[in-house]
Design a protein around this nucleic acid. Sequence first.
DNA 1: GTCTATATCATGATAGAC
DNA 2: GTCTATCATGATATAGAC
Lengths: 208, 208
Amino acid sequence: MQQGYVATSLRGITAKAGVNLAAVNYHFGCKEALIREVFERRLGPLNAARIAHLDKLEAAARGRPLGIEQIIEAIVAPVLHVSKEPRPRGTISLQLLGRAFSEPAETLREILPAQYREVVIRFKQALTRALPDMPDQELIWRMHFMFGTLSYTMTGNDALKLIATCNREDGDDAVAIMRRLIPFLAAGLRAPLPALQIKRSLPGRRAA
Amino acid sequence: MQQGYVATSLRGITAKAGVNLAAVNYHFGCKEALIREVFERRLGPLNAARIAHLDKLEAAARGRPLGIEQIIEAIVAPVLHVSKEPRPRGTISLQLLGRAFSEPAETLREILPAQYREVVIRFKQALTRALPDMPDQELIWRMHFMFGTLSYTMTGNDALKLIATCNREDGDDAVAIMRRLIPFLAAGLRAPLPALQIKRSLPGRRAA
DNA sequence: GTCTATATCATGATAGAC
DNA sequence: GTCTATCATGATATAGAC
């Protein structure tokens, strides 16, 4: 997934694994089936951990709505667990999962919704309870933005990285990144509702 | 860019363009040079429009800091302009630009920083003035999150799309999406600073 | 089950007639 | 400049020996 699905050849995979070229086709049938199993093996435990985390929070809350930060942390914390796997597997797994939705390969588009289905449903329920005044459509969009930010951050790609003015200090520490990410997302989810009619040029200066 | 760089063959391109297979190599030299010119032709005007928009806002503000929403709109509004180009060019151009950073092709990694350099510098200056109490590192990360959300949203990919519970109404209207996106990002940028030490389980319930 | 060898095909690039 | 024809390469997949 450093190279993307199409650019990654079975020759490269089998060579790095130290096995024969024909092994993939014997054990998995075809290249698609291999990548599908990789995704299931990585995404399955991750999303299961997210749901387990949420279960625990909800059991402890005894019927009260959860806090936004708690809910976001249930999504994010399992990612940190993955990132701590020994190098380079941790980093690459994050790339894999983050890029999954941007990956143009058709076959991924089929398995991802199934993998994420339960997670999305459960977290939408939790967020609906935490934000009772939020219209349904608005919440769905904000969840969309949230997943987008998370995916993009997980890829490790970075529009800003190569700009000289912006040399960051804690580039590799996933925990530090997520510690910054959670307040950002929480504030976004809690943002005041947009006016139904927004004029083309905004008044602004609200932060001055 | 519906298929990604590697999966798009010169045969496919020339066939759709109604020209000869050899035309690309004659006029551009190689496939890489072609995609590079495509990006420059799309990204150049977009980023130029962003800077022009910012210039206009700053001229009107006469030295006062801009509002966060204004700054974000200067980034987002030019995207809307692209999205309004006749179908399917508008939609596909957005995919192209949104996926650019996730695209694994090595050649893109070289030209994108150059294309975005000025934009990042200018907007960082503007945001620094609008958020004077924000530490530099924190601001850079929040800009990173912001670009990530925007890129992901532009791709049109969607983790939530295929989940039955989440059927959205205004799927295709880019203006409506951006109208929702701006308050989300503005709130994220303005979020309270994270505590230096966050305990593993948060107190939560702040939103109840 | 694992290997070698190979079939089949698509790709990017180029040579050379026009 | 534009076309046809072709090259060299590397891809997935499979047949068949061991």
